[in-house]
Simulated scan of single mutants.
Amino acid sequence: MLRVLSLAALGAGVLAARQRVLHWGATPEEVAAEYSGDALIPNPSGRSTMAVTLPAAPESVWPWLVQMGADRAGWYSWDRLDNGGRPSATEIVPKWQELREGDRLNATTDGRVYFVAAIVDPPSTLVLRSDVAMSSGQSFDPRGPLPKRFIEGVWGFHLTELPNQRTRLVVRTVGRNAPRPVMAVFDFLVGEPAHLIMQLRQFGNLRRRVRAEALPAPKTT
């Protein structure tokens, strides 16, 4: 009986930790909400909702998001891991402010993997979609037949205006992959913790960037 109780307690602890990983910073209402882009992935096998409050209005946060991409401003996360070691931009770059639905954003510096801008609705919603065949390690067109081994999902950024020139940024991911028995273990041990680490880094860097932009310029004498 003691062993059974210990295993039950361990299982409950693991489940609680996983929920914290998947829902970092989000309220129960944000976790339960449905967002634009959720339905783009049918029969999903996983979903996460993370959130942060940023010290700038959505109109000031949006330019940082819309210029993301390995071939653009980077991802504001751990650049050595997801941007080929190239530092992410620390300023808004006008030439990267134009983004239309259907445009590709390189996810890797070699362009083998890319996101497609699925929903672009400034300054409130940016949803990026990725479909990757695991056998080739390259993106594929989801309108064709699915590979036997694949990962596909959406990475959505949802901005809501708060009082006092602030933004509530909710990041929702929805995905599915195959083969499930193998990928379920990978998601739990690698994918979900890695997403948390990268997303929290991005949140912190976005906060620093929008705060620095909002500071008054130093006076010159």
Rank of each mutant, 00 (worst) to 15 (best):
Q138H: 09
T109C: 10
I92Q: 03
L126M: 04
G156C: 09
R168P: 05
D82L: 14
L99T: 10
S139I: 02
R72L: 02
I119N: 04
G74A: 06
E161C: 05
A73Q: 07
E101F: 03
S136D: 03
S88K: 03
V132S: 14
R72M: 04
V116E: 01
I119W: 00
Y76G: 13
Q165S: 06
I151R: 12
W96R: 08
R72K: 13
V170R: 02
N164V: 11
G156S: 13
R149Q: 15
P122Q: 01
S77D: 01
S77W: 02
V127P: 07
A70F: 07
F115M: 05
L105T: 04
S124E: 01
S88W: 00
N164F: 09
L128M: 05
N83K: 01
S77H: 03
A70L: 08
G111A: 15
A107S: 04
A133H: 07
D121M: 06
G74S: 12
S124P: 11
S135K: 09
R149S: 15
R80Y: 12
I119V: 09
R129Q: 15
M134N: 15
W75K: 14
T160L: 14
K148I: 10
V120E: 03
R149I: 15
G144R: 12
L128H: 04
L65I: 00
T160R: 14
G69Q: 04
A73M: 02
Q165Y: 10
R112A: 05
A70E: 00
D79Q: 13
F140K: 05
M134W: 12
G74W: 04
L99G: 03
A118T: 06
P163M: 09
M68G: 04
R72I: 02
D82F: 13
A118L: 09
V93S: 03
R168S: 04
Y76P: 12
L99V: 11
A118C: 05
L105S: 03
A107Q: 15
L169S: 01
F150A: 07
G153C: 03
D71E: 11
S124K: 13
G111E: 12
E91M: 14
